[in-house]
Design a binder for these strands. Structure first.
Lengths: 214, 214, 214, 214
DNA sequence: TATGAATGAGCGTTCATTCAT
DNA sequence: GATGAATGAACGCTCATTCAT
């Protein structure tokens, strides 16, 4: 399974997932990301996981519980890294240019999204239909991701004296560009294929736009 | 139903939808956009349409056929306008600035998206799971939307002598911004609420970025 | 089906049961009285009713609803008659002897129990496990059956000047005798077979016991 | 567990139950009397018995075998005492009155029923659905309980010269009263509550009824 | 043509029973 | 012997689809 790099993917701090549970979640991510939650069959997840359907329900008491148990994994593997200091690097590396900073930001996100692609697809889509998932999603965006990003922007604004730039608008733009690039890569790979290589020019365009013209 | 302005919404060239079919499709858009295709019940669609379940199956031989019949409507109402000359206005109004042009482009898209919001949601989400929908979607993007957009960009590039600008990158950026803004408005309305008002500054940022710095 | 004399058994005032519902209830009474509620399969009830399982659930939204819908039938066919004036005849026929009165009371009950045997079995047994059924059962006994019986006893006590007789004890005894006779007939038919013929002597024993000895 | 006085409860002649088996049966009586056989889970019985489910099936090869193994226990603890000489006391204490004799009989039964309440409930209810249990039940009643009771009645009839009394009817009446009282106490405790205290008057009523009137 | 009752395949879930450790 | 994880048949229930009226 391409999403999951190694067997330690699901064993994050604060949770002790058994081998069976990991197999189930791996299978669930495969099946649900392919068919959607509602069209995914517990029988299919079980057989993909190499266990019986009865065993599946020993570990997850309902189909929905499987879906919900993906939430902390997304948070751990996708959201946690984004809000960590090392991700933004807004403190230690102030000698870097804003372009470098943003390229790093885009690159890290791209990497994270690639690593968690199927998982993210599930959570994003199912949050349309499961309020509890949407809420988790929104909460993390609102309380962690956006503040963290805007903090970085504020620092850069001060550093480069771009007082007229609207922080909120820039954060919206950066997130939009990320989302858009990921979706376009997925939907129109032959036109908007290699995302990684386009970051450089995208960042240049963006930073250039933020700088005041003569 | 807010999506459908009048009874002629579904009567596009090449198709003659009966009154019953229109009612069914209206109901289907309501129900499916709310619950997703799989969680939508034919019984609910029928009762929302004010007909019996039996009648529904006289007009659409299967539930999936209803979904697929929404495709040409999306194409007609969403994609067609986008690729039409009047949408781009790249010929007649050459006296306008590039900012005006883009603001108009964003505004028109926003309008179109608003008018077709539920319909688009269905097609975008279900295209994740139904290859035939995805293909239609991709084909229109590749053959019509992107060329049309890039044609406009080329014209503007010539007009404003921005030779160094990468057309593909700009089209990707514009589409990304549109997608991102729509999604963010939907997922994080209290942070990134009013889309329309942010177009102006977004366009300024973008155009500013495209212009060469001193 | 022995319990149900004719097709009008289930059509009592205040309820309009369809033909299908009657078939389902007839089948349910057969199956559940044989196997118990928990061991009865909806598939078996459906096939006994001559319909598909899907149809069964069109008329009763759950298996338990079938069980609960038997309650008003028991009330209508078993409890209602017991508390009606005509059953006790404590007003119009005061010229009758207490023996006649009791024989009539026993006889009527025996008839009612025979007619509703399976239905009663279900309700009595399942009230052990379903509190709502037990409550209905108790309520009817406490508020209707026992008061009605004790009213009759009081009248007879006055008529025959049996002041020393404990009304509550006599009602308990009468009900016990009824229950016991019915159960013994069911469990030990070859020993305590014909209930009807033993009523006469039972009543004589009871009345004799109530009368004061010299 | 209130039913089982001590660890020797289950060790009756002809059977050697291991400690584990006793624990299992104790747990089974608790669980099954509460939920009914079908709604009782082997997992619940095992955990109540403090053993694993696997171990349970080492001692009883199926769930039903547990139920059936309760039968000899009921026979040993409930029926055996009833048919024993000491229970009836028809020989040694001929100086007692018939009232005393019956009160003693009722009292002893009441005591036995109280001590075996849960066990009896299981056997009585499940005999409705398991023919082999019903048969055992019937056999003991027919061959042991009824003859033993009627023997006592015959002796009393001779002693008190009540030739006209129908022995079978009296035995039926006595058993009915016992059954009725137990059931009424269970179903309508607030009306027909204390069984023990009503025996005295019940016996008086019964004996009075058996005696010839002037 | 329109209906809606009837269908039955297929779902998520349970639980008595098995068996490797 | 004791365990408890694993099993899978069978359950209650759903719902897209059919068809007699």
């Amino acid at each position: 399974m391409e999403l999951v790099k190694d067997s330690s993917y699901f064993t994050y701090s604060g949770e002790k997932l058994s081998e069976k549970q990991i197999k189930i979640l791996e299978a669930a991510i495969m099946i649900i990301s392919k068919n959607g939650f509602n069209s995914s069959r517990t029988s299919e997840i079980a057989s993909q996981a190499g266990i019986s359907e009865g065993t599946l329900f020993r570990y997850y008491s309902s189909k929905k519980e499987i879906l919900l148990s993906l939430l902390p994994i997304v948070i751990h593997h996708f959201f946690k890294p984004i809000i960590e200091e090392s991700f933004i690097r807004n403190k230690s590396n102030q000698h870097r240019t804003i372009e470098d900073e943003l390229k790093y930001y885009f690159h890290k996100h791209h990497q994270l999204i690639s690593e968690n692609e199927r998982l993210l697809k599930i959570i994003v889509v199912e949050s349309l239909y499961f309020p509890e998932i949407k809420l988790s999603f929104q909460t993390f965006m609102k309380n962690s991701v956006v503040p963290s990003l805007e903090k970085m922007i504020e620092i850069q604004k001060k550093k480069y004296k771009m007082k007229n730039v609207d922080t909120r608008l820039v954060s919206k733009t950066i997130i939009s560009l990320l989302i858009g690039h990921v979706l376009l890569q997925s939907y129109l790979p032959d036109i908007y294929g290699n995302e990684e290589t386009s970051f450089e020019t995208t960042v240049n365009l963006l930073v250039n736009g933020m700088k005041e013209k003569r």
